[in-house]
């Protein structure tokens, strides 16, 4: 069990700590501008790891 009791919406959370505020579901409606970098164009010229990319918006 975690020592920290991080508040989440006023609820005491003992067993889980969420580390991010994900936007993937929201991006189903708002994404697709295409201004971001091509994922294979950067440091990984022999693989494709889109998860390492950032949104430019």
């Amino acid at each position: 069990m975690f020592h920290l009791e991080a508040g989440k919406g006023g609820i005491q959370v003992k067993h889980i700590q969420t580390v991010n505020k994900p936007t993937m579901q929201k991006s189903l409606k708002t994404g697709g501008c295409g201004e971001c970098q091509a994922s294979c164009q950067s440091a990984c010229k022999t693989s494709c790891t889109v998860g390492n990319q950032v949104c430019e918006k």
């Binding site: 697709g32 294979c40 889109v50 390492n52």
Partner: peptide, 22 residues
């Protein structure tokens, strides 16, 4: 590079489907 990941402001779903774009 391979440990970089923006968990809160990562790529949109359209980008995740486009992949490398090849």
């Amino acid at each position: 590079f391979h440990f970089n990941m923006d968990l809160s402001n990562g790529p949109c779903v359209a980008k995740r489907l486009s992949g490398c774009g090849a």
